[in-house]
Design a protein around this nucleic acid. Structure first.
Length: 184
DNA sequence: TTGGCGATTTTC
DNA sequence: AAAATCGCCAAA
């Protein structure tokens, strides 16, 4: 099981978001390997995207998101839940893809729908802020067995009603027909 | 230093 | 429908 190369992330964010669907998220903790298949994501394109955290500019929190691709952007939301993103596109772009749901594959309970639940099931917290995803203990990879062709559904992103025109752009993507989705 | 708020989840 | 709960950030 090999980590996707950094070049995978160093591309257009929407393209990466599409291609992340069906990939495996792998986390090794204390000798336990947890694996989930990504079923739902959201793209955050950069400072011009009013729903993206980087629209607030370069701050300590957004530092990683403005950095080179292939690193984890993990943050705490509502004082109690963590959200996991992968930084995308060229260094300095300020874009990322939020992982919203996975299908349990190995050592996960079935409570993996929703960004907060996904992080809880995988054991992801802020200690992984800025963690290199081209690493041995936390990474994404191709599935072991080739995927049959999947259909991708596009919907407006969730929880970003404050973002004006950007609130209804169809930047949420999920695998059509998958039961492992945070909501229809 | 302070106050408002959030890429959510759970419970009432 | 509303609470839980705290780090981030803009304003003072």
């Amino acid at each position: 099981m090999q980590a996707l190369p950094r070049s995978f992330y160093n591309r257009d964010t929407v393209a990466v978001a599409h291609d992340l669907l069906g990939k495996l998220l792998v986390k090794k903790t204390d000798g336990i390997t947890r694996v989930g298949k990504i079923t739902e994501v959201e793209a955050y394109l950069g400072p011009h995207d009013l729903a993206a955290h980087t629209s607030k500019g370069l701050t300590p929190r957004t530092r990683v998101m403005f950095g080179p691709p292939g690193y984890a952007y993990v943050y705490l939301i509502y004082g109690m839940h963590h959200c996991m993103n992968v930084v995308t596109d060229a260094d300095g772009t300020g874009a990322a893809v939020l992982l919203r749901a996975v299908e349990p594959v190995l050592n996960l309970d079935d409570n993996t729908r929703g960004p907060g639940r996904l992080c809880r099931a995988m054991g992801i917290d802020r200690s992984l802020y800025g963690h290199d995803l081209c690493s041995a203990d936390f990474f994404l990879s191709e599935p072991d067995t080739p995927q049959s062709t999947i259909h991708i559904v596009s919907r407006p992103r969730i929880g970003v009603d404050y973002a004006g025109d950007w609130a209804h752009k169809p930047l949420r993507f999920y695998i059509d027909g998958s039961p492992w989705i945070s909501r229809p």
